[in-house]
Design a protein around this nucleic acid. Structure first.
Length: 212
DNA sequence: GACCAGATGTACT
DNA sequence: GTACATCTGGTCT
């Protein structure tokens, strides 16, 4: 029997059950996602990434992101205007989801930014579940997708428009933002040094790499 | 902290 | 056909 990662969206971890209304979550406007990608990467620290599954919501608070700046960024899939079936969603309007499969076993979720035709995105690197969820459950981009149950079958979906995968803003205390270079992009030359990773300094789910 | 195997889709020759 | 990837978890120092 051949084992392979499912390409179908899978079951979210039960500890991630949330009630968006009780948490006071609200929608971002489309225009927000069309803004400067670095700004979006920073502003969605503290936002909630959520998925509706069997009529229940599951979600987590984002604590680590990275900005990928399109055709001028050697670390981005859209470097030098590269356009393939895989990265096609990067060219969609801001507020869409770009999910890719990497290293033969992990999925990574990105929020597409800027206008249609501009291939920039924000990688969601880590999140914290609601109270009671294991601290390390979502402490990496592959784990985040596995925990919420997201796979490439959801690439290209709209995070607005009342879909089943959403990004919500949350009113509450401001996170303490830290900035570092990105992780895992050493092949990208000078771009590997750019300060495009944003973290919530107070989150135990954030990797200590390139930091402190 | 550094190093490494693992598994396979994707891009490119 | 070949090389490598927006990673993770384990081992060793």
């Amino acid at each position: 029997m051949i084992r392979r990662p499912s390409t179908k969206d899978s079951i979210p971890h039960p500890s991630l059950r949330i009630d968006p209304q009780a948490l006071g979550l609200s929608e971002f406007p489309r225009e927000f996602f069309r803004l400067n990608t670095t700004h979006v990467a920073r502003e969605i620290i503290g936002a909630w990434f959520a998925r509706r599954f069997q009529n229940q919501w599951y979600g987590a608070r984002i604590v680590e992101t990275e900005a990928y700046l399109g055709s001028n960024d050697a670390a981005a899939h859209s470097w030098r205007g590269r356009r393939t079936p895989r990265n096609e969603p990067m060219y969609m309007d801001g507020g869409h989801l770009y999910v890719f499969f990497v290293y033969g076993m992990h999925h990574c979720a990105n929020v597409v930014t800027r206008a249609t035709g501009v291939a920039e995105a924000v990688l969601l690197r880590a999140a914290e579940g609601p109270e009671g969820a294991p601290v390390k459950l979502l402490s990496g981009p592959g784990k985040l997708c596995a925990g919420i149950g997201i796979t490439v079958s959801s690439t290209g979906e709209d995070l607005l428009s009342n879909g089943d995968i959403r990004l919500f803003r949350c009113r509450g205390k401001e996170p303490e933002i830290g900035i570092t270079k990105r992780i895992g992009v050493d092949y990208a030359g000078e771009a590997a040094e750019w300060p495009l990773r944003f973290i919530d300094r107070n989150s135990p789910a954030v990797s200590k790499r390139n930091y402190k």
